[in-house]
Each structure stands twice: as C-alpha cells, then as structure tokens.
C-alpha cells in the first residue's frame, strides 16, 4: 500500500471513529416539525406585514385620486370603505364575563376588495406550499368579509376588540386544513395575532383526532366538553406537544364528525388574561363556533 492509500485508509478510520458514538436524538422528528411550524409562523407574519404595508400604501393613493378639485373620479365599486383609522380602543379583561353581540360589526377599518384593480393589492394564486409563496399575500380563502365564516364553520364569539386578521391559509396544518387569525387593530400593523383558528377536515381531521386522543390522556391537559363533544384545553409547544412552560394556550375539539377545530390564543394575549381568563375565553370562543356545512 503506497503512502496515499495509507493516508486514505487512516483518514477513513479516523473519520469513522470520530463519529462512531454520534446518534441522532430520538426527538429529531419532533424538533424538525417544530422548526417547520416556526417557519410557517414566520411566513404568516411576513404575509400579514406585507398586507399591512400594501394597505398603508393604498390609502394615500386612494386619497390622492379622490380628493381635491382636480382629482380623478372614484373608481366604480371603490375598494376602500370606511374610515382609515380604527376609532375604538381594545380592552381585554380577565374579569370580562359579558356576552358578546356577534351581530355587531368589527371596529371600523379599511377593507380591501381583492377584485378591484385600483387597490394596488395584487391577487395571489392559491397555493398549498407556504414555503414557495413567501412574500405573496396569504389569501388562500379569499375575501372572508368579517372573517368569521371559513372552512365550514362560523365563529360566533371573539374577545372584545378583535377583528379579522385579513389573511387566510389553506393546508398549512395538513391536508385539508384552513386557518385565519383575529387581531387587535394595532396588530394589523405589526403582523402579530391574538387568536388563531384552524379547521381540520378529511386527512387533517384524522391527524387532529389522534392528537386529541393523546392530549386527553395527557395529565398536563384539561378535558372539556364543547356542545357535548369531548375536547381539551392545553398549552402546546411549537411541536404541538403539551407543555407546562411558555406554550400556546389551545382548545381542540370536533365541531362535528370529521371536522376538528383548534383555537389558539397568543401567549401575549394570554398573559394579559391570566390562566383562568385564558381558559374561559377559549371555552367561550369554542362554544360560539358552529359548523355550517
């Protein structure tokens, strides 16, 4: 064996010995899925921020077009309605027990019609892969109006001050799933959320069923009943595992056979409400949800 071959052999032995004791952690799958979920969350925040920027740009453009003696005539079916600045403050109280009038409209705000070419908001092709659509507007479900009806459900109750987050996603939580968020008017600018709801159907519902079963057997979770259906309230980590520390307060149940609903409250909002207030609000949201299909 010549010197080069000897070096190759010695090097191979050294490399093999160096990593011989290395084993991938048993929790690799969970860690990878947690990273994926964080990636999807970042994508969602980016999309919301882009939408906010575009709306902010659309307002002065619309104002310039429609104000002053030399202004261009309004575009038929104008896209912008209502005052641009929300007029009501946001209050989230842990002591709040008042019933919410679900027929009252959300706070006045700018609304954007995706069908109007004058809005300067580009339409987006629905996609199943968030990873390939970063930077585009996540409007997989289109204009949801007040945002309370989507994915085969109607959201009857939301905590005071929350409005639709003006975005929606499809299949980001498995096939077939739908999701959207509810935010304070201030959060429309920051891209943050207060409440997120995910609807699971078909394949996604089967996975949700497995999770629900596991959660209900987890001592860290609280079993609840939503219109007679067995659900669970738990604080979930980024890998969807029940956690005692700094998780996302979540309630999961089946609104009807084959249709699971998961309501998540942002840790920031939860902190303001406290543990009992958080659980109470999650239950109220859940009890206000009705299957529409």
């Amino acid at each position: 064996m010549n010197a080069e071959e000897a070096l190759k052999e010695a090097l191979k032995d050294a490399m093999s010995a160096h990593v011989a004791d290395v084993r991938a952690p048993a929790m690799t799958g969970q860690a990878v899925r947690r990273r994926h979920r964080a990636h999807v969350t970042r994508f969602r925040a980016t999309g919301a921020a882009v939408l906010t920027v575009l709306v902010a740009a659309a307002v002065p453009a619309y104002t310039a077009l429609t104000s002053g003696p030399g202004a261009a005539p309004p575009v038929p079916g104008g896209a912008l309605t209502g005052p641009a600045i929300p007029s009501e403050g946001v209050t989230l109280s842990a002591d709040s027990t008042s019933e919410v009038d679900v027929t009252s409209p959300p706070s006045p705000m700018v609304t954007v019609s995706p069908t109007d070419s004058a809005t300067a908001v580009p339409t987006r092709r629905p996609t199943d892969d968030p990873a390939n659509s970063a930077g585009n507007l996540p409007e997989d479900l289109g204009d949801l109006g007040d945002g309370r009806a989507f994915g085969g459900i109607r959201v009857g109750y939301l905590p005071d001050g929350l409005i639709w987050g003006k975005w929606s996603g499809k299949n980001g939580f498995g096939t077939t799933s739908y999701t959207t968020t509810y935010v304070t008017p201030e959060q429309l600018k920051s891209g943050e959320y207060s409440v997120q709801i995910v609807v699971f159907e078909d394949e996604a519902a089967r996975r949700a069923k497995s999770r629900l079963r596991a959660y209900r057997n987890d001592p860290g979770a609280t079993k609840v009943s939503v219109h007679g259906a067995g659900g669970v309230v738990a604080s979930l980590g980024e890998g969807s595992e029940v956690t005692a520390n700094a998780g996302t307060p979540t309630i999961l149940w089946f609104a009807k056979p084959g249709l699971a609903v998961e309501v998540m409250m942002s840790p920031v909002m939860s902190e303001g409400l406290g543990p009992k207030g958080t659980e109470r609000e999650l239950k109220k949201i859940a009890n206000g949800v009705r299957a529409t299909s």
């Binding site: 990593v19 290395v22 084993r23 991938a24 690799t28 799958g29 990878v32 498995g174 096939t175 394949e203 089967r206 996975r207």
Partner: peptide, 22 residues
Amino acid sequence: MTEEDEAAFDEFLAARSTALLR
C-alpha cells in the same frame, strides 16, 4: 401532508438522520 407522508418521513428519519448528522 398525508398520514402516509408523515409516517414515511419518520421512517426516513429513523434510517438516515444519524448518517446525516455524522
């Protein structure tokens, strides 16, 4: 992803994640 996809990914991890880490 379907359940089958998820299961296949777990199998892939079980078989290859250590080699990739090395």
